[in-house]
Computed example of a mutant assay.
Amino acid sequence: MDPSVWLWLLSAALILAGLAGTILPALPGTALVLAGIALGAWIDDFTRVGGVTLTLVAVLAALAWVLDYVAGLMGARRVGASTEALIGAALGTVVGLFMGLVGVLFMPLVGAAVGEYIARRDHGQALKVGTATWLGMMLGMIAKVVLAFMMVGLFIVALVF
């Protein structure tokens, strides 16, 4: 079998793993998508997917990375979250990795709420901070998914046209 076929399969596998990683925090989603696209460009000797496309894709990847981290913080800070709430959200995310998709989606909320409760002993504020942090994280994840699909779309358009 032609070695380039294996490289194209690896490129596709990296892109698919990256798309999964936009939802699963254990995988560096947009970085894997970017790596798969860069590999695809390299396999084709950068003839169809050139520097401009790779630069646009890299900018989208960087934007997705920034949004992923900033969105949750913005949601938390908007409602006056404590440092303990932010630490709790981070710990909740790590714990959620071991609980499947439901854990990944909801443990940051629980962690932020518990952290805020420990800091202020106010149930209402803890729930408000937990919810705001979770909403910020979900909006960040949605933005990351959209940007990852835009990256793949640019790659496909460059390959085909």
Rank of each mutant, 00 (worst) to 15 (best):
G36E: 02
L34V: 04
H123D: 11
L101S: 08
S82F: 10
G96M: 04
F46A: 12
I37A: 01
W134N: 02
T93D: 04
A113Q: 03
L139V: 11
Y69R: 14
G115F: 06
V52T: 15
G124V: 11
L139P: 01
V160K: 03
L159I: 10
T55C: 07
V49T: 12
A71C: 04
V145L: 12
V59K: 08
L16K: 01
L73F: 14
V104Q: 01
G124A: 14
W6E: 06
L154M: 12
T53K: 03
V129F: 02
M1C: 11
S4M: 15
A143I: 07
T83R: 15
G72N: 04
V95A: 15
L34P: 07
I37Y: 00
F98A: 15
F46P: 06
F46Q: 09
D45L: 13
V145M: 11
V5I: 15
G136T: 12
T133H: 06
V104D: 01
K144W: 02
A85D: 01
V104K: 00
L19Q: 03
V129Y: 02
S4N: 15
P28Y: 10
V79R: 08
I87T: 12
D68C: 07
P28E: 13
L63G: 09
T30V: 15
G36L: 02
G124L: 13
A112S: 13
G92P: 11
A85H: 01
M141W: 01
T30P: 09
G103N: 04
M138K: 07
L109A: 12
G130R: 03
Y117P: 07
V145K: 05
T93L: 15
V33W: 08
K144R: 10
M151P: 05
D122F: 10
T30A: 08
G75P: 04
I87Q: 09
L34M: 10
V57Y: 06
M137L: 14
L109P: 01
T55G: 10
K144T: 10
A71H: 03
G100K: 01
G50L: 13
G100Q: 03
E116N: 08
I15P: 01
G72W: 04
V52K: 13
A26H: 02
A13M: 09
G103W: 00
L54D: 04
A17C: 14
G111C: 11
A38P: 02
A113N: 05
V49K: 05
V66F: 12
V110A: 14
A41E: 07
A12Y: 12
I142R: 00
L32A: 11
L127T: 13
G136N: 11
M107P: 02
L56I: 12
V157T: 06
V79A: 06
E84Q: 14
M141L: 14
I118V: 15
